[in-house]
Simulated assay, not measured.
Amino acid sequence: MAIWVLCHLLLFLVLEPTNANLEGDALFALRREVHDPNNVLQSWDPTLVDPCTWFHVTCDSQNRVTRLDLGNAKLSGKLVPDLGKLERLQYLELYMNNLVGPIPAELGNLKSLISLDLYHNNLTGSIPPSLSNLSNLRFLRLNRNRLTGRIPRKLTKLGNLKILDVSNNDLCGTIPSTGSFSKFTEDSFKNNSRLEGPELMGFVRYDVGDCN
């Protein structure tokens, strides 16, 4: 019995730093990709085993990253797919920066995510359909970027979604009207000149032609 307990204790001690290292590597991948003029990421030291000691990072009692607060930090550069490795992340706050490029499809792996705030950046490309995997998501704010393409209809299955804002982009096609989207008003979609739908037009239109 004592040997069994000892083995499990050793396994726990081995696995925990491994998780911390993986999450630290994922966060440091972001640091390498962005320009940080105010040195808000200066404490992100890859030689430390535990990223929970870094500023702007919050962890749970098991030293797993649950929150990343980098709103209005004057960061520029691209998001990295590595962020999808933060399995217990609940809040990803990267609003009001100067981030460019696409939203990584890998963010759809963040099954614990409650809030995804990427508004007021310069993100391009389409909204990844993989975000429909975020069953715990309550807040999705992608407004004031340069996103294009259709709103993925798979997002309508996000039953816990309370706030959606994709306004002030360049989205096109029609606005989904089923599932969680039935409760969102025109304000969630405004200032997308190529976007049509029941909230804006009073009836459902079906997507036809090209929409890029």
Rank of each mutant, 00 (worst) to 15 (best):
L147H: 11
P102F: 06
S130I: 01
G101V: 05
N122T: 14
L116I: 11
I114K: 11
K111T: 09
N136E: 07
L110G: 05
L142V: 03
N122S: 15
S130N: 15
H120M: 10
G125A: 12
A105H: 14
L137N: 03
H120P: 01
N133A: 08
N143T: 06
G149H: 11
L107K: 15
N109K: 11
P104G: 01
P102A: 07
Y119A: 11
L137R: 01
G149P: 03
P102I: 03
R144I: 09
N143M: 05
L107S: 13
S132I: 03
G125Q: 00
N122V: 04
N121V: 09
T124P: 00
N122R: 10
Y119M: 04
I103K: 01
K111R: 06
L118P: 07
L134Q: 00
N143E: 15
N109A: 06
P128K: 15
P129I: 12
N109E: 04
L142D: 05
P128Y: 14
V100G: 02
D117L: 13
I114L: 15
I114C: 05
T148I: 14
R138I: 02
P128D: 14
S112Q: 11
I114E: 12
S115V: 11
L118N: 07
P102H: 07
S115K: 09
E106S: 15
H120V: 14
K111C: 06
R141F: 10
R146Q: 13
G101T: 08
I114D: 12
L110P: 02
L142W: 02
R144W: 15
D117Y: 11
L140Y: 00
P129F: 08
L142A: 15
G125D: 04
L123K: 10
S135V: 02
L131D: 00
I114Y: 10
S115N: 13
G149A: 09
D117T: 11
T148V: 13
L110F: 03
P129H: 03
L123S: 08
F139A: 06
N133P: 02
L118S: 12
L140E: 04
L110Q: 08
L140W: 10
L99H: 01
G101N: 03
L107N: 14
L123E: 08
N109Q: 14
S126W: 12
Y119Q: 11
Y119I: 00
Y119D: 04
R144A: 14
R144T: 14
I114P: 02
F139P: 02
T148K: 10
V100W: 03
N145Q: 05
G125R: 13
N143A: 13
R138Q: 07
I127A: 06
G108P: 13
R138L: 02
L131Q: 12
L134V: 08
R138P: 00
Y119K: 08
